[in-house]
Lab assay of single mutants.
Amino acid sequence: MATADDFKLIRDIHSTGGRRQVFGSREQKPFEDLVDLGWLKRSSVDSRATHYQITERGTSAAL
């Protein structure tokens, strides 16, 4: 179930172009929650960072 923080984060991601790069596993937790909701997808993972991209469902949630 989505929380107020989830909606705040997806709106922030949407307003800044729909993509986010995250460093460190602790910082990934809120983004992984949005992946579980179907609002974000992991577009790539490298040794230092994970890249996320907003989905259509995420765009709808952000509006």
Results as ranks from 00 to 15, higher is better:
T3R: 07
H51R: 09
A49E: 10
D46I: 06
T3S: 11
T50K: 07
T59L: 13
T3V: 05
L37F: 06
S60G: 08
D36K: 15
G24T: 08
T16L: 07
F7G: 02
A4H: 10
S47M: 10
S25T: 13
L63R: 07
T59N: 07
R19S: 14
G17A: 05
K41F: 15
G38L: 04
V45D: 08
D46A: 07
F23I: 13
Q21C: 13
L9M: 05
E56M: 09
I10H: 00
Q53F: 09
R57Y: 08
S15K: 12
S47P: 12
V45F: 11
L9S: 02
L40V: 06
T59D: 04
D36W: 11
R26P: 09
K29S: 07
T55F: 00
G17M: 05
T16D: 08
A62I: 04
E27Y: 11
R57K: 14
H14W: 14
Q28V: 07
E56T: 10
V22Y: 03
R11Y: 10
I54F: 01
G24N: 13
G17V: 02
I10F: 02
G18A: 02
S25D: 14
A2N: 04
P30K: 10
D33T: 14
R42G: 05
D5E: 13
D5G: 09
S25H: 13
P30N: 05
L40W: 00
L37W: 03
L37P: 00
I13L: 05
E56H: 09
S44A: 13
R20W: 07
G17C: 06
L37R: 07
L63V: 09
S15I: 11
A62Y: 03
K41M: 14
L63G: 05
G58M: 00
A61M: 09
I54N: 01
D6M: 12
D33R: 15
I10Y: 01
G38W: 03
T16V: 06
I13W: 01
L34A: 02
T3Q: 06
T16G: 10
E56D: 12
G58A: 01
G17P: 02
F7I: 09
P30M: 07
G17F: 04
R11L: 13
D5P: 06
T55G: 01
K29P: 04
S25N: 12
E32L: 09
R11C: 09
K29E: 08
S47V: 10
R57G: 07
T16Q: 11
L34F: 01
I13P: 01
S60A: 15
K41L: 13
S25I: 12
H51A: 10
L63F: 06
A49S: 15
I13N: 00
L9H: 03
T16F: 06
V35H: 03
A61L: 04
L63D: 04
V22L: 04
E32M: 12
E32S: 07
Q21L: 14
F23Q: 11
R26T: 15
A61R: 03
G38V: 02
E27D: 13
Y52H: 01
P30R: 10
G18N: 03
L63I: 10
F7H: 05
G58F: 01
D33H: 15
M1Q: 13
S44R: 14
Y52K: 00
T55W: 00
G38M: 05
Q21T: 15
F31Y: 15
E32G: 05
G24I: 07
A2G: 11
G18P: 02
L9A: 03
D12K: 08
L37V: 03
S25Q: 14
Q53V: 13
A49F: 12
L37Q: 03
K8N: 10
E27G: 10
F7S: 03
F7N: 03
A49N: 08
V22C: 05
K29Y: 04
E56Y: 08
H14R: 06
R42N: 04
L9D: 01
Q53S: 10
S44T: 11
D6G: 05
I54G: 01
G17L: 04
S44Y: 15
Y52D: 01
A49M: 12
S60P: 02
S25P: 12
T50L: 06
L40H: 00
P30E: 06
V45H: 11
A62Q: 02
E32P: 01
G38Q: 05
T55V: 02
F7L: 10
S47A: 13
V22R: 02
S43V: 15
S47E: 14
Q21G: 07
T50Y: 09
D5F: 09
I54D: 01
S47K: 11
S44Q: 13
F7T: 04
M1G: 13
